[in-house]
């Protein structure tokens, strides 16, 4: 057990939570699937892809078909789950973090710069857009006792910032 104190999420807890997510997703045909690097203690993570159309701003009528690939992995140093994602256009070129911010100007007030940054994926060790993990523990803390699936509870809070909406079936898993 990697638990720092009683009120934090262990890797075992995390793995159980993402397993539940994948099971529910399979029933919903929602697209979450497992990936694993067996050499790492925190090697398990889940992935989901989703296509969305976001328009840049008023001047730009062009609709950008973007593919979001979400990853939920475990960050050992913070002891929290991490939501990483990459976004690419139809030709496969990735959005830069600046381009992503531009598409999300409505979130500016909540200080996008602090919230979404680029960090190395905990397992893949490649740069991904990441919801900065430093506040995750704070957000998760109330859920650790109350929720049966703290990872889902946390996702329902932070997901909307990155256009990730969870089906109500997942929320049912928490109580």
């Amino acid at each position: 057990m990697i638990t720092l104190d009683d009120m934090s999420l262990s890797i075992e807890d995390f793995n159980r939570c993402i397993e539940d997510i994948v099971n529910t997703s399979d029933n919903l045909i929602d697209g979450w699937r497992f990936e694993q690097n067996e050499e790492l203690e925190n090697g398990k993570y889940i992935i989901k892809k989703e296509q969305k159309v976001l328009s840049q701003d008023q001047e730009d009528d062009i609709n950008h078909v973007l593919t979001f690939e979400y990853h939920i992995a475990f960050n050992i140093s913070y002891g929290v789950p991490v939501l990483c994602f990459n976004v690419w256009k139809q030709d496969g070129t990735m959005l830069t973090v600046e381009e992503f911010w531009k598409l999300n100007e409505r979130f500016k007030e909540s200080n996008m710069y602090d919230t979404i940054t680029q960090m190395d994926h905990p397992v893949l060790r490649r740069p991904f857009f990441t919801l900065h993990p430093c506040r995750t523990h704070e957000i998760m803390e109330p859920f650790l006792e109350e929720s049966k699936n703290p990872v889902v509870s946390w996702l329902t809070v932070v997901g909307p910032f990155v256009h990730l909406d969870l089906n109500e079936e997942y929320v049912k898993m928490c109580s």
Binding site: D91, G92, T93, M94, T96, V97, P127
Partner: peptide, 20 residues
Amino acid sequence: LANMKNTLDPSVIAENAVDL
């Protein structure tokens, strides 16, 4: 044309990461 330099060229990835 897909220009994948930013995504696939490791030296460009390194440069972008340093700048970031």
